[in-house]
Amino acid sequence: MSDINIVQEHHLAPEQARAAAQQVADKLSEQFELTSRWDGDVLRFERSGVNGTLSLLPNQAQLHIALGFPISAFAAQIESKVADKMRRVFSA
């Protein structure tokens, strides 16, 4: 197993931060066939071999992804793509 942890600072209003988080989730869903749901200010997502959360805090988004064995081989590439997406959507 491999874990990915990304912390992205932002200066968005809560509703803008939630929309940005949803964009990240939509991209993850598209690329990795994940299902997601909101639980307060935490977006939970999963599929076989992958699960994680995207937590919204004031001025910060915290992403945690746990990758199962087969997918963990691609952890570096996944982290790079997700970090880039988070930088773009939370810098608006």
Rank of each mutant, 00 (worst) to 15 (best):
I6N: 04
I6Q: 02
I6D: 01
V7R: 10
Q8L: 03
Q8H: 10
E9L: 04
E9D: 14
E9V: 09
H10E: 12
H10P: 06
H11C: 02
H11N: 15
L12C: 11
A13T: 10
A13G: 10
P14F: 13
Q16D: 14
Q16I: 00
A17E: 03
R18W: 00
R18Y: 12
R18V: 02
A19H: 07
A20M: 08
A20Y: 00
Q22K: 07
Q23P: 04
Q23D: 15
Q23W: 02
D26R: 09
D26T: 13
K27S: 15
K27Y: 12
K27Q: 14
K27T: 15
L28T: 05
E30F: 08
E30M: 05
E30Q: 12
F32C: 08
E33Y: 07
L34R: 10
T35V: 10
T35R: 12
S36L: 09
W38D: 03
W38N: 03
D39A: 08
D39I: 06
D39M: 06
G40R: 04
V42D: 09
V42M: 13
L43T: 03
L43Y: 03
F45S: 08
E46A: 13
S48F: 10
S48L: 15
V50L: 06
V50W: 11
N51W: 06
N51M: 08
G52Q: 12
G52E: 03
G52H: 09
G52K: 05
L54N: 04
L54H: 01
L54A: 10
L56R: 04
L57K: 08
L57G: 00
P58Q: 02
P58I: 00
P58S: 13
P58H: 04
N59L: 06
A61I: 08
H64A: 07
H64N: 07
H64I: 01
I65N: 02
I65T: 00
I65A: 03
